[in-house]
């Protein structure tokens, strides 16, 4: 936004983001431990396990959502795509375990294709991401509604349910799954060429274009991945709930964005780490679990949610770093007498 040199100093991008993620994990642990105070049954390993399992869906959808946000977009079709994924898995895979082999990839392919449609709309038709994905969400929801005639029919899959019920060394299988995802996701972002180019596109699309990066393809890919990750979350939900409903995705739209934003990703694109989003998901899930346990109304939970997002936005502003940097740079700690208005120093046309 501002055309001046930023005095964020020589902060190395990576360590800052990792720090941020670790802080979120720490906060989550503290919150879980602290909840013992509310009820003696809380604060133990079993509660931590329950929270990890519960947060797995947000962890999964937040992966795609974050990639989209990193390129400066937003995916508002996630709730409907997740529902569609779940309904399809419930209907077509059913109780058959061999069907998982083709069923799960099939669902992921289909939801990825929906993501691709989002990508085409945003990248080639230049529809604002927020409009495109909102409209796509309604379309997909309508299609799911029509497809099921209002009530999804099918059978729960025992193997999918086993992800949540069976454990290995006392830890439910799904927790291994999201741990692996957290590591792979972070590696994809920081360790691969795709990830590096993705950040470049998110930081400065114009420069990325001039530098010869395939800006459209990369942006498109983020929507495809977002569709697939929402589909995967829907499939997992079927395992957890043992069924599918037409509203199963609804309560994950805002958390998917909130986890990403609270996890330290700039909504303007270009900066953030998946590990942070995972931390954000854990923290928010813990938060709502604890709050729910003290019997607070859903309204208050929503209000607090909104305020948390707002605080995260306020705290993550680049200007704040600039300001802190200036305080550190000036021994007197006196802020500059005047700052030019952003409106004026911003680039022209």
């Amino acid at each position: 936004m501002s055309g001046q040199d930023r005095r964020a100093g020589g902060r190395r991008g990576i360590s800052g983001d990792v720090w941020n993620a670790l802080a979120l994990f720490g906060l989550t642990a503290l919150l879980i431990l602290g909840s013992r105070w509310i009820s003696p049954g809380f604060g133990g390993w079993s509660q931590a396990k329950a929270i990890l399992v519960l947060s797995s869906f947000v962890v999964v959808v937040a992966f795609g959502q974050q990639l989209v946000i990193l390129t400066g977009g937003l995916d508002l079709s996630i709730a409907s795509v997740m529902t569609m994924g779940g309904v399809l898995a419930f209907t077509f895979i059913g109780a058959s375990s061999p069907a998982l082999l083709w069923g799960v990839p099939g669902v992921l392919l289909l939801t990825a294709a929906i993501g691709a449609l989002n990508g085409i709309g945003v990248v080639w038709l230049r529809v604002p991401p927020f409009i495109m994905t909102l409209a796509m969400g309604i379309i997909v929801y309508g299609a799911t509604l029509g497809l099921t005639g209002g009530t999804p029919r099918g059978q729960p899959s025992p193997l999918l349910s086993a992800l949540f019920t069976a454990d290995l060394a006392g830890v439910p299988l799904v927790i291994y799954l999201i741990s692996v995802l957290a590591v792979l996701g972070t590696l994809l972002q920081r360790g691969t060429g795709f990830g590096r180019r993705l950040y470049a596109v998110g930081t400065n699309p114009a420069a990325a274009h001039i530098a010869g990066l395939p800006v459209r393809r990369i942006t498109m890919m983020t929507y495809v991945i977002s569709g697939a990750s929402a589909g995967l979350a829907g499939v997992l939900m079927v395992g957890y709930a043992g069924g599918a409903t037409l509203t199963m995705g609804q309560s994950y739209q805002l958390p998917s964005i909130a986890a990403v934003v609270v996890g330290g990703t700039s909504i303007l694109g270009g900066s953030g780490l998946y590990l942070g989003a995972v931390g954000g998901a854990l923290l928010l899930t813990t938060f709502s679990t604890v709050i729910a346990s003290i019997g607070i109304a859903e309204g208050w939970r929503t209000v607090i949610y909104g305020i948390v997002i707002l605080l995260a936005l306020l705290l993550l502003r680049e200007e704040l770093y600039v300001w802190v940097g200036r305080l550190a740079a000036r021994p007197g700690g006196i802020p500059p007498r005047s700052t030019p208005s952003t409106a004026m120093t911003g680039g022209n046309k």
């Binding site: 109304a297 309204g299 209000v303």
Partner: peptide, 17 residues
């Protein structure tokens, strides 16, 4: 988008209250 998303969530919460 981001800031009005937050105020939207807060006001929807208030409506639920």
């Amino acid at each position: 988008i981001a800031s009005t998303l937050a105020t939207m969530i807060v006001t929807s919460g208030l409506a639920l209250l």
